[in-house]
């Protein structure tokens, strides 16, 4: 066994001890994780893709025009849209049509955000809510009243924005 070999083994052994010292130091650090249900991090990133919202214009007019592009683009086929014609007496959106029914199966959704990208009016957005558990499968199919934001801007998006 040459001297170089011995030196190499010594160096490797020393490196192991050094590693042990590093982990030992970490033993005394406070945890960086949080006790989740009781304690939560302030907020997720603005670009986080969470629960869907159907956004409104400032004047509470619905953005969705019932074009079904989100239905077409959705890779997991989680969206169902039933479109209806706007009439002068019943003007729901600013286009010709509006979504009479709009359902998203949150169990099928993979939160890829393609629907948000495809939407020509910026109606469907992925919000920041991430606690999406439910007790039944049925309760995870979000219907239009659940998806539509309660007031313009409730989803965290600017109701004045143009797409």
């Amino acid at each position: 066994m040459g001297a170089r070999r011995v030196r190499k083994y010594l160096r490797q052994g020393f490196a192991m001890l050094k590693g042990m010292a590093v982990t030992f130091r970490y033993l005394f650090r406070p945890p960086i994780t949080v006790m989740y249900p009781e304690q939560k991090r302030p907020a997720v990133q603005p670009r986080f893709k969470g629960r869907h919202w159907l956004t409104l214009y400032e004047d509470t007019m619905e953005r969705c025009v019932g074009c079904e592009l989100c239905v077409i683009v959705c890779p997991s086929q989680a969206i169902y849209v039933k479109a209806a014609e706007n009439t002068p007496e019943h003007q729901v959106s600013k286009g010709e049509r509006y979504a009479e029914d709009f359902q998203i199966n949150e169990l099928r959704c993979i939160f890829c955000g393609l629907c948000e990208e495809a939407c020509p009016t910026g109606a469907i957005v992925l919000g920041r809510e991430y606690e999406l558990a439910g007790y039944t499968r049925e309760s995870m199919i979000y219907t239009k009243p659940m998806l539509t934001e309660p007031y313009p801007g409730a989803s965290g998006r600017d109701p004045k924005r143009e797409v």
């Binding site: 982990t23 970490y26 033993l27 650090r29 406070p30 945890p31 960086i32 994780t33 006790m35």
Partner: peptide, 10 residues
């Protein structure tokens, strides 16, 4: 618990 401490978790 110890492994958690080493990995700075709970």
């Amino acid at each position: 618990r110890l492994l958690a401490k080493f990995q700075i978790r709970y």
